[in-house]
């Protein structure tokens, strides 16, 4: 049963998944070799240094893909009118939605993690990085990587929560953005990574609880 849902989800988001993988791959390649970037001939990037090219673009790409993914997974069902079909399958709504969330988040978290690891491995290789490199320098990027889960859940909530587009529909996404910004500000002020991780996971848990509540109580018409 779980396999059927996972396969269905994977098939539905495979286009976005390929796009995500391609975007991260290109970003990793450009970070290692700026000559691949048409407008930055002769530039030298130093990944994982505060607000470097890789981290900034990693955040923008991540935000774009998690919003696209969250909306595709939820609004896709609304547009096709398949929520009644899906939720009449003999399973709990929680399980069905958990499978959706698990597949969606796994895809972009895995792609993002591979991009960070690839650039990290490149930077760790002798003769490639313009300065001393420690893996601890990647902590900021890993926290950003995890913090995008908040935005993914916000986008997911936009799709499942019935509201007017010209009203409060985008409110969860806005709230998620503010929360992510707040967590990162807290991290930049304190440099306590585990506090940031704990905060992100707490916010994620809260957003998942709201998703569960909305999915369980909303009308599917």
């Amino acid at each position: 049963m779980l396999r059927a849902i996972v396969i269905k989800e994977l098939r539905e988001i495979r286009g976005i998944a390929l796009l995500i993988a391609a975007a991260y791959l290109y970003l990793a390649m450009v970070s290692a070799n700026p000559r691949l970037l048409p407008f930055a001939q002769g530039a030298m990037f130093t990944p994982f240094v505060h607000q470097d090219f890789f981290t900034i673009w990693f955040v923008w790409i991540s935000l774009a893909v998690v919003i696209a993914l969250g909306l595709r997974q939820t609004i896709g069902e609304s547009v096709q009118g398949t929520y009644p079909f899906l939720f009449h399958r003999p399973s709990t709504r929680n399980r069905l939605m958990a499978a959706k969330l698990a597949v969606g988040s796994s895809i972009y978290l895995a792609c993002g993690a591979l991009a960070i690891l690839a650039v990290g491995l490149w930077a760790a290789a002798p003769g490639t990085y313009h300065g001393p490199f420690e893996w601890s320098m990647t902590v900021q990027t890993w926290i950003l990587w995890l913090a995008t889960t908040v935005v993914y859940l916000g986008a997911f909530l936009v799709g499942v929560r019935p509201a007017c587009w010209f009203g409060t529909r985008l409110f969860p996404l806005l709230a998620a953005g503010v929360l992510m910004f707040g967590v990162m500000m807290m991290y930049y002020l304190t440099y306590w990574p585990w506090l940031a991780v704990a905060l992100i996971l707490t916010i994620d848990a809260g957003m998942v609880a709201v998703i569960v509540l909305v999915v369980r109580t909303r009308d599917y018409s």
Partner: peptide, 13 residues
């Protein structure tokens, strides 16, 4: 229980 929703929504892909 089998349920045929209005418009027979199925995954079109």
């Amino acid at each position: 229980i089998a349920y045929l929703a209005e418009g027979h929504p199925l995954y079109r892909w």
